[in-house]
């Protein structure tokens, strides 16, 4: 009696090392899925890393702090009665102050003490660069993610908007 395989004009597959075409396609799809999954995992891991390594942001870059311009309070600006948000004392003539890129002004001593601890403006949290490579990497990563999101939205809007 002819075997099942003979009747159906097939080999029984034993010893055939070559994967069939549909099988290799399946393998390739699986490989792609694995890669995608890995990429997602990297993203999740790095997000977690950001949370756990530094719940608190690192100090501002020493160089950037040194390069902040010092501004003396003029008689005219002393009259405005503005105060330093760190020590809550009003600026008086000849006070030495620094202005951050976000335009917030503080006594030099006050803001330098703060920036030795955290890299952001005490009022608006504008972030200055840091000397911490991991934190900077994370920041770039976040900026890229945001940019991607923006691009995707723009693309979506141009197609369906």
């Amino acid at each position: 009696m002819a075997s099942y395989f003979d009747e159906h004009d097939m080999s029984n597959g034993e010893g055939s090392a070559q994967p069939r075409p549909d099988q290799s396609l399946l393998l390739r799809i699986l490989e792609m899925a694995r890669l995608l999954q890995e990429e997602m995992d990297v993203e999740i891991v790095s997000d977690l890393g950001f949370m756990s390594v530094s719940g608190k942001a690192p100090p501002a870059s020493k160089k950037v702090v040194e390069e902040l311009e010092t501004k003396l309070i003029s008689p005219a600006s002393a009259c405005l009665g503005k105060q330093c948000a760190i020590c809550l004392v009003s600026f008086v003539e000849e006070d030495e102050t620094k202005v951050l890129p976000c335009n917030h002004q503080f006594h030099s001593v006050c803001i330098v003490t703060w920036l030795k601890q955290v890299n952001s403006c005490p009022i608006c949290r504008y972030e200055l660069p840091t000397d911490d490579p991991n934190y900077e990497e994370m920041r770039k990563h976040k900026a890229r993610a945001k940019q991607r999101e923006y691009e995707q939205e723009t693309l979506h809007n141009s197609m369906f908007g």
Partner: peptide, 10 residues
């Protein structure tokens, strides 16, 4: 009250 403190808070 932890890591998000800012010196301008009162």
């Amino acid at each position: 009250l932890k890591d998000q403190w800012a010196a301008a808070m009162t």
